[in-house]
Design a protein around this nucleic acid. Structure first.
Length: 325
DNA sequence: ACCTGTCAAGTCTGG
DNA sequence: CCAGACTTGACAGGT
């Protein structure tokens, strides 16, 4: 089994390369000249996109083929203060540059809209904003010229006292979206509410619109729902990735401490990751992508590779890829 | 240069 | 019904 590793949004190695610079809404309002303020937002967005491209070059130099884009590339986009603002024409070239580079080097890019995107919400306004947010994320992938293999990953959302009705509401809200958005989505189990099996069941319920599931092995560890992560569960998860033209993806991170097991540690424990990789390899998974969610970002990735180098039963293919033997 | 409280957005808990 | 926690990188304003 071939396993590629990636990291999220920012680098702890490349300096001054934030893809998430922003401006607060209060500060935007303080500026007298609205036109100038809007141009400043556009400059920040350009800089975020330029830094994203810098990070992709860094990734290329270190064989990292997997990267999650920052959701904060364009500050205050979709904020009501900026209704009517369309920054995309100005940002056309920087978006395309990112997409071109990613395609040229076979990189897998994704987004993870944050926890304000909640399709299980009973509140109409929350749902409407969630739709808008997803639309924007998909729009950015389209501006990059990336095909449907570039996904947006979200959680099921809140339970509101009744997980079953919440899940049903999620399914309903999901089905109301256009195929254009639906085909870009993946669903991930969370650390408090929807377990791996429950998330998988939602994916399976959406059957006619195939929605792959991203398994987060750390979330599963702190929210098992009593289920064992075994070959059967993994095989079912893999089935959601059939016909996607991309390998299944998982998220990996380690508990911050015993006191805060849900928090993310600086680095990732190699043995825990390896245990899962061996399970996946045994089920006959040919390829797997692993997104690391550690505080030290790419620093954690390279440390993990160093740690894996010492282990039996695998070999390093390059700086960010291993083969499980 | 460095430190601290605050930030657009949601949900859950506890008072 | 409302305040605070949760969680995170970055701002904003202070020293």
């Amino acid at each position: 089994m071939i396993v590629r590793f990636g990291y999220v949004a920012m680098s702890t190695i490349v300096e001054n390369a934030s893809p998430s610079r922003t401006m607060t809404a209060t500060n935007f309002q303080k500026l007298d000249d609205r036109e100038a303020a809007v141009r400043r937002l556009e400059r920040i967005a350009e800089e975020n996109l330029r830094n994203t491209l810098r990070l992709l070059r860094h990734n290329r130099a270190h064989d990292v083929h997997l990267y999650r884009l920052s959701s904060k590339l364009i500050p205050l986009l979709s904020h009501e203060l900026l209704s009517g603002w369309d920054p995309f024409p100005v940002l056309e070239q920087p978006f395309r540059d990112i997409g071109d580079y990613a395609k040229e080097h076979g990189m897998r890019l994704s987004f993870h809209p944050d926890h304000f995107t909640v399709l299980s919400s009973p509140r109409e306004e929350v749902l409407r904003n969630s739709y808008l947010d997803l639309d924007i994320h998909v729009r950015m992938l389209e501006e990059m010229g990336l095909d449907e293999r570039a996904k947006c990953n979200i959680h099921i959302g809140g339970a509101y006292g009744n997980k079953e009705t919440a899940a049903a509401r999620f399914v309903d809200s999901f089905k109301r979206m256009t195929p254009r958005i639906q085909r870009r989505m993946t669903l991930e189990n969370d650390d408090k509410t929807f377990t791996a099996r429950e998330t998988l069941e939602v994916c399976e319920q959406l059957g006619d619109v195939p929605v792959p599931m991203v398994l987060d092995i750390h979330h599963h560890q702190v929210n098992t729902g009593g289920d064992l992560l075994d070959e059967e569960l993994w095989t079912r998860i893999c089935r959601t990735w059939a016909n996607q033209r991309i390998p299944p993806k998982i998220h990996a991170s380690s508990p911050k401490s015993e006191k805060d097991p849900r928090g993310h540690a600086d680095y990732v424990n190699a043995d825990q990751v390896l245990t899962f990789l061996q399970l996946a390899s045994q089920t006959g998974t040919p390829k797997l992508d692993v997104m690391l969610e550690a505080k030290m970002k790419d620093g954690a990735l390279f440390r993990l590779m160093d740690d894996l180098r010492q282990k039996e039963g695998l070999r390093l293919l390059d700086q960010a890829t291993v083969e499980i033997l």
